[in-house]
């Protein structure tokens, strides 16, 4: 049997308790890794942009991304610093930012 991470869904339930149900929101996730946390909430926001400097993990996240989430949920191999340098020049701003075990 495979490794089991947070089988009680404690992390995602706690996220919804503190941040609300994320329905229709725009979310920036920093330190997304292979998408472990993203899979738990990604069906709800209008937009998710998830970054992590680890290219291998981001590649895994992109492979696992459900087709019905394409365009709405994006992963990028970037540090926060790199993303900030580009994003601050644009009008894009988020409703919610998540530091996922990464601050």
């Amino acid at each position: 049997m495979a490794l089991r991470l947070d089988s009680a869904n404690s992390e995602i339930e706690t996220l919804f308790q503190l941040a609300g149900d994320l329905q229709g929101k725009s979310v920036l996730e920093v330190g997304c890794g292979d998408g472990r946390l993203t899979w738990g909430y990604g069906h709800r926001p209008a937009l998710v942009y998830a970054v992590d400097p680890n290219e291998v993990k981001i590649a895994a996240a992109k492979r696992t991304l459900p087709p019905q989430w394409y365009g709405r949920v994006q992963f990028a191999a970037q540090s926060l610093e790199q993303y900030y340098a580009a994003a601050i020049q644009t009008p894009t701003r988020y409703d919610i930012a998540i530091f996922s075990w990464s601050l």
Binding site: L37, F99, L103
Partner: peptide, 24 residues
């Protein structure tokens, strides 16, 4: 870390939320 928090603040809408998750 404080620098990263300033950057996140800049990328949030007014009234936006920051969620931090880290081990105790």
């Amino acid at each position: 870390m404080v620098h990263a928090l300033k950057q996140i603040r800049d990328l949030l809408k007014p009234g936006g939320l920051l969620i931090d998750i880290h081990p105790s």
